[in-house]
């Protein structure tokens, strides 16, 4: 159709089109080596492709398989204001006042500690291993005797 070819030609000449029209479709390409996709990220610990939507929480901030994360937020979840970008590994597990579990993440580069809520699809075995880590200490018997 002649009208369509004419439109395309004018858009090419203008570089980006005239505005209006249809919206830009979401891209599924990496913008630079090691860059992020629009709807998923790759875990820094186990290289798993993780979708951004997580059940039970609005902010996916760690890998559901190995519980590792990346240090991108500074104060509030999702602000992306940290320049560290280091790997954050799960250090321990604490219980919030309302009874839900919280991971304590520590950055391997700058040593910052951050509490993060667990998500609904987190690996239950990894969580249990983390919860049992203090109790697997062989010196626990001495501690228990000291408490008596």
């Amino acid at each position: 159709m002649p009208r369509r070819t004419h439109d395309r030609r004018t858009r090419d000449a203008a570089g980006r089109g005239r505005g209006g029209g249809r919206r830009q479709r979401p891209k599924d390409v990496r913008h630079r080596p090691g860059g992020e996709r629009g709807d998923a990220f790759r875990c820094v610990g186990c290289r798993l492709d993780v979708p951004l939507t997580a059940p039970g929480t609005a902010h996916r901030n760690h890998c559901p398989h190995c519980l590792a994360g990346r240090h991108v937020d500074r104060s509030t979840p999702g602000d992306r204001e940290s320049r560290c970008r280091g790997r954050m590994t799960a250090l321990g597990l604490s219980v919030h006042e309302n009874g839900e579990w919280q991971l304590i993440h520590s950055c391997e580069v700058c040593g910052t500690l951050k509490p993060n809520r667990i998500a609904g699809d987190d690996n239950a075995l990894a969580l249990i291993r983390l919860a049992l880590r203090p109790l697997a200490d062989p010196r626990l018997r001495d501690r228990a005797l000291l408490a008596l």
Binding site: L91, G92, Q102, I104, P134, D137
Partner: peptide, 17 residues
């Protein structure tokens, strides 16, 4: 004190908030 963390050396660490 909110949590107990275990370092690679096996020592216990108390996490405070």
């Amino acid at each position: 004190p909110i949590a107990i963390a275990v370092l690679r050396t096996g020592d216990w660490t108390v996490v405070h908030r």
